[in-house]
Simulated assay, not measured.
Amino acid sequence: MRKQIVAGNWKMNKTVQESTQLADEIVSNVKDLSLNNTRVIIAPTFVNLSEVIKVTESSIVEVAAQNMHQAKSGAYTGEISAEMLTSLGLKTVILGHSERREYFGETDAILAEKVDAALANDLEVIFCFGEVLEDRKAGNHFNVVESQIKNGLFHLEATAWKNIVLAYEPVWAIGTGETASPEQAQEMHAFIRKIVADKYNQEVADNVSILYGGSVNPGNAKEIFSKQDVDGGLIGGAALKADSFISLVKSF
């Protein structure tokens, strides 16, 4: 049975003090919740990972990294390797976020290398992908999503997919206040599950969690998360306050 996941991507927000305070509030609020099949993940910036891990270590709240470099080590000033992440005790990394693709030039080929490096170090990957507004308006959104998934992930063996979480991000709905309708989200998620099944098999497709990321908030989460193929959310702005994030965790 695939897991439901609420993952908060804090992006370039929060000082170390603010991060530990937010993490502590989240830990305090989830400890009494009945979360039989729901994972709660938070992803602070690199410099705050160690302190946030300390706050969450005895709780069900998991900590993930927002990114990593594909090389094992070397002259890559400012970058972070998979081994550095696992040495902190991390088990999950977000790769391919639309902001990494747009602002930092991460291509499908680079992301395929990053995925391989993460899996080689026993890291679970939350793999992001999605179309921009022009693609949606042109009716090209399915082709874009299929291409990004194929190029980034379809070189993997079926067994590797136990460590893959998919995150569909309609880029036009990230931080804009615009949100794909629950029906649009379900339509795309069902399409994603089908192409995974066509490439591998139905079991792999049925077991992979597919998250929606695009201006999810306490007002729309319950309806979006209720859709058959939507297994949770990769949350941006609403993850930066404990009360809104916890309300999303309770939305299943």
Rank of each mutant, 00 (worst) to 15 (best):
L90I: 12
K91P: 00
T92Y: 01
T92W: 03
T92E: 05
V93N: 04
I94H: 05
G96M: 09
H97V: 08
S98A: 15
S98V: 06
E99F: 09
R100D: 04
R101Q: 11
R101F: 08
E102Y: 07
E102W: 01
Y103R: 11
Y103V: 05
F104M: 10
G105S: 13
T107K: 14
D108R: 03
D108L: 00
D108P: 04
D108C: 01
D108Q: 03
A109I: 08
A109N: 09
I110R: 00
I110E: 06
I110W: 04
A112W: 03
A112M: 01
E113H: 07
E113L: 13
K114T: 08
K114W: 04
K114F: 02
K114P: 05
V115Q: 02
V115H: 01
V115P: 00
D116E: 15
A117D: 08
A117K: 05
A117G: 07
A117R: 06
A118F: 11
A118D: 10
L119W: 12
A120L: 15
A120C: 14
A120T: 11
N121F: 11
N121R: 15
D122C: 12
D122L: 14
D122E: 15
L123Q: 06
L123S: 08
L123W: 06
E124Q: 11
E124R: 10
E124C: 07
E124D: 08
V125W: 03
I126E: 01
F127I: 09
C128M: 06
C128Y: 03
F129R: 02
G130N: 08
V132L: 10
V132R: 15
V132K: 15
L133T: 07
E134V: 13
E134C: 10
D135F: 12
D135Q: 15
R136C: 01
R136P: 00
K137L: 14
K137Q: 15
K137M: 13
A138M: 12
A138Q: 13
G139A: 12
G139V: 11
G139Y: 12
H141N: 13
H141A: 14
H141G: 04
N143A: 14
V145K: 02
E146H: 07
E146Y: 02
S147H: 05
S147Q: 13
S147E: 09
S147F: 01
Q148M: 12
Q148R: 07
Q148V: 10
I149M: 06
I149R: 04
K150H: 02
K150L: 02
N151K: 12
N151G: 09
G152K: 04
F154W: 09
F154Q: 10
F154I: 10
H155A: 06
H155L: 04
L156W: 00
L156S: 05
A158F: 08
A158S: 13
T159R: 09
A160D: 11
A160K: 10
W161I: 03
K162R: 10
K162D: 09
K162W: 00
K162P: 04
